[in-house]
Amino acid sequence: MQILFIIISAITLVSAVLVVSVRNLFHAALYMMLSFLGVAALYALLESGFMAATQLLVYIGAISILVIFAIMMTRRLMQTTESPFNSQWGMSGFVSASLFVLIGAIVLQVYPLDPAVAGGAPPAEELVTNTVNQLGVAFTSADQLVLPFELASVLLLVALVGSIIIARPDVEAEVEDES
């Protein structure tokens, strides 16, 4: 289990580094899909099959394809001559690294790193089935999560309509051109 975790994490993190450093944006999008796949495997290791499946569907299925479409529709992105980083990349690296050290120090203060000391996850019977059942009940019960659930659907609808309106070409200008 531990070796599996280390391999999956290594794949996820290495491909994430490649996402932010590779010159060709299309390759970056492919590495991003690999990184998402690693995160889905981490969900599976955490016995959250529902989240793993959702990750595959939403991130790898939808968001990656959206990003690849955006890359293909903006022509100059594929150009590989100029540097992919702006002038503040050194400072950004310093800030990110120190944030990582800070978070790591806090985590290690609270949760021990040694598996013999910390132990694994608590045992849970039939976790995958139970979780899906509980989620379904929680999302439809009036005293639980039904309001956030409906708000999320409204948010998705608004985002969909909004992105269509933002991204479509200027209709008035086209009408003037034709007349």
């Binding site: 531990q2 580094v17 992105l77 990582f100 985590v107 949760y111």
Partner: peptide
């Protein structure tokens, strides 16, 4: 037996890589 801290460290590392990408990349996509 995977301790919770391992997941937290991996997650922190992924977050910082993403943060670096947001701050340092020139391209909006």
């Amino acid at each position: 037996m995977i301790p919770l801290s391992w997941y937290l460290i991996v997650s922190a590392c992924l977050f910082c890589i993403g943060l670096y990408g947001v701050m340092a990349r020139r391209n909006a996509v």
